[in-house]
Amino acid sequence: MTISVVLVDDHAVVREAVAGMLGAQPEISVVGQAGSLAEGRALFDRLLRTPPPGKVVAVIDVTMPDGSGLALVRAVRDRSKDIGLVVLTMLSDDSTLLEALDAGASALVRKSAPADQVLSAVRRAADFPLEFSASGLAEAMRRQHETPQTTLTSRETEVLKLLVEGASVAQVGRQLFMSPSTVKTHIGKIYEKLGAHNRASAVIAAVRLGLVADVDRT
């Protein structure tokens, strides 16, 4: 099946290089490019109205002149569970990787990675848009767990609210456009941050700490 790819990166040279590499593959067609978040949003508005043939994957840079590409990742994921979202970045810090996971990306690949890793991420994102993969994910999560935190990300708060309402893992995944394994990853992070061992203790801890003051506890 054809994979239609769109590229969002403010560096024209990078876009051209990635477009050339991907376009050389028989099943991949580059159908759009954008050099800013504003152009990217407009591009996705058109794509969502008139989807191109086959599966759709976006390759999005993080550092853009008008904001973070991860904001675009989150906006697209909030509107579609079917688009693969590959984050391509120069950054190598844990926070960027974990924020990409939280935003609903399908994968994160560093620009220093070999071309075949980018190609593999695009193909995997086309088949499994809701499954997040990234080199070093396990290590980043371990380092995060070693540093106690009590602040939930926006995605973690959304997951927690649904858990409070009695939603199952599958129901959370359907509502937030995430795979069950990704939902479980977020739940594990919530429990770790709150020092909880189950749903009830997580809710009690979050409310006590004022992290989810707007959660309906009735």
Results as ranks from 00 to 15, higher is better:
Ser95Arg: 14
Ser106Gln: 11
Val76His: 05
Ala121Thr: 07
Ser80Trp: 11
Asp66Val: 13
Val59Asn: 01
Lys81Leu: 06
Arg79Gln: 15
Asp102Trp: 06
Leu101Pro: 04
Leu101Tyr: 10
Ala58Gln: 04
Lys81Gln: 07
Ala107Cys: 11
Val56Tyr: 00
Ser106Asn: 10
Gly67Ala: 11
Asp82Val: 08
Arg79Glu: 13
Glu99Thr: 15
Leu85His: 09
Arg74Lys: 15
Gly69Trp: 08
Leu72Asp: 05
Ser92Trp: 05
Val87Lys: 08
Val57Tyr: 00
Lys81Trp: 04
Asp102Gln: 14
Ser95Gln: 14
Glu99Ala: 15
Arg77Thr: 10
Ala71Ser: 13
Leu108Asp: 00
Thr63Tyr: 07
Leu70Ile: 12
Leu85Asn: 06
Val57Thr: 01
Val109Phe: 04
Ser68Gly: 06
Ala115Arg: 05
Val59Met: 06
Glu99Asp: 15
Ala100Ile: 08
Leu119Met: 12
Asp66Asn: 12
Arg110Ala: 12
Ala103Ile: 12
Pro114Gly: 07
Arg79Ile: 05
Lys55Thr: 09
Leu85Lys: 10
Leu72Lys: 07
Met64Thr: 09
Leu101Gly: 02
Ala103Asp: 04
Thr63Phe: 10
Leu108Arg: 06
Ala103Pro: 11
Gly67Val: 11
Asp94Gly: 08
Gly104Thr: 14
Arg74Thr: 12
Ala105Ser: 10
Leu91Phe: 15
Val87Leu: 02
Leu97Ser: 02
Gly54Trp: 11
Arg74Asn: 04
Ala113His: 03
Leu108Val: 12
Gln117Ile: 00
Ala71Asn: 11
Val73Ile: 15
Pro114Lys: 09
Thr96Leu: 05
Gly84Cys: 09
Arg110Tyr: 02
Asp66Ser: 13
Leu98Arg: 09
Thr63Glu: 13
Leu72Ile: 11
Ala71His: 12
Gly54Gln: 08
Ala71Lys: 06
Val59Trp: 02
Met64Lys: 03
Val59Lys: 01
Val109Cys: 03
Ser68Tyr: 12
Gly67Glu: 07
Thr96Lys: 00
Ala107Val: 11
Leu108Cys: 10
Leu119Lys: 10
Ser92Asp: 15
Val109Leu: 03
Ala121Ser: 14
Asp61Met: 05
Met64Ala: 12
Leu101Ile: 10
Asp93Leu: 04
Pro114Tyr: 03
Val76Ala: 07
Thr96Cys: 08
Ala75His: 13
Gly104Ala: 09
Leu88Gln: 01
Ser120Ile: 03
Ala113Met: 07
Arg110Pro: 00
Gly84Arg: 00
Val73Ala: 06
Ala103Ser: 15
Thr63Trp: 05
Lys81Asp: 14
Lys111His: 09
Ala75Asn: 04
Ala115Asn: 12
Asp61Arg: 04
Asp61Ile: 11
Leu101Asp: 01
Asp102Met: 04
Ser112Cys: 05
Asp116Glu: 15
Ser106Arg: 11
Ala71Val: 13
Ala58Lys: 02
Met64Arg: 06
Val118Glu: 00
Ser112Trp: 01
Ser92Arg: 14
Ala75Val: 08
Asp61Phe: 11
Ala71Arg: 08
Ile60Arg: 02
Arg74Ser: 13
Pro114Asn: 10
Leu101Val: 15
